[in-house]
């Protein structure tokens, strides 16, 4: 087989796996921004918080990073509910979401980043687990477990959340908030409580996303910023509020980034998401599967 074709195939495969991981990173924003209209730009910072929780549990207690993330879920959910409560009292009730709300989340992003720097320092940190290192060999294609396990975890999370939203009573209530809050109020339901639950959920996904991020690559506090452009590019490209569109966009971006990294050098990869974001905003702001 041709060497460059081999390279291309492997780049596409690792792009697909990377895209699956991007879906886990983006799903929190797909919920908060896409469904609740809360522009949580601090989400990548919270994902890094999840990474460091996994790192701490892994190095100090010798725990598996994904198990640590699952244990940390309730704490992340509670933190998310708290953040939403402050956001609601300070901004949503006062109708000052744009200037105040955006600055609020920007401040949270910065505080999280500097807080992590103060506690853990600016060195790259990584975790140990049995599936980091070996890879499955399928003919011409290498399937590194370091990417494959996060891909599986991410897909389980996305499908689980999709089922929760479409099947359970609470999930449908969240979908209702996303569609028409005023109508919900007229039905005597309390959109604030439902939004608090949904925001808590979106925050909790950061624990899982953080754990699989630190499995894929070593982590330092400022890499969260790289993910802001990526996450919002994925959510806008996929169409706000659409999970399936979000997954398609995540995989697309993963493949394009992987090809860019393979053929132009990894230092160009962060520019891809910005290009995708700008083109989407200019050409089709409602995204590929937008409502």
């Amino acid at each position: 087989m041709d060497a460059s074709l081999d390279l291309l195939l492997n780049a596409v495969i690792s792009g697909l796996l990377l895209g699956g991981f991007y879906a886990a990173v983006s799903i929190g924003v797909a919920i908060s921004f896409g469904m609740l209209d809360i522009v949580n730009i601090a989400h990548p910072g919270f994902i890094l918080l999840g990474s460091y929780v996994a790192y701490f549990a892994n190095t100090v207690l010798g725990m598996d990073p994904i198990l640590a993330a699952v244990i940390a879920l309730p704490a992340f959910y509670a933190l998310g509910a708290l953040v939403y409560q402050i956001y609601y009292i300070a901004f949503e009730r006062r109708q000052d979401q744009s200037l105040g709300g955006l600055s609020f989340f920007f401040g949270l992003l910065f505080i999280t980043e500097v807080g992590l720097v103060l506690i853990f320092g600016v060195d790259y940190r990584l975790v140990q687990a049995r599936y980091i290192g070996p890879s499955l060999n399928l003919g011409w294609v290498e399937l590194p477990l370091r990417l494959f396990v996060p891909f599986l975890v991410s897909m389980v999370m996305v499908v689980g959340l999709q089922l929760f939203l479409s099947r359970s009573f609470l999930g449908r209530a969240i979908e209702a908030v996303a569609q028409d809050q005023l109508a919900l109020r007229l039905m005597a339901a309390n959109p604030t409580r439902i939004k608090r639950v949904a925001f808590g959920l979106s925050f909790a996904t950061a624990a899982i996303a953080g754990a699989i991020l630190i499995i894929i690559q070593p982590v330092e506090p400022s890499i969260g910023r790289e993910y802001i452009g990526r996450v919002f590019a994925i959510c806008v490209l996929g169409g706000l509020g659409s999970f399936s569109g979000m997954v398609i966009a995540a995989v697309t971006l993963g493949v394009v980034e992987s090809l860019t990294a393979t053929f132009f050098g990894p230092s160009w990869a962060p520019a891809v998401s910005f290009g995708v974001l700008l083109v989407t905003l200019a050409v089709r702001p409602s995204g590929i599967l937008g409502r």
Partner: peptide, 26 residues
Amino acid sequence: LTLRLRGVFFSIATLALAVVVQTLIT
């Protein structure tokens, strides 16, 4: 490119702009 949309899209685009200009300079 972005000011014709809702304000948040402009904000997000500027966040991404900071990353891309840094990539170009690097």
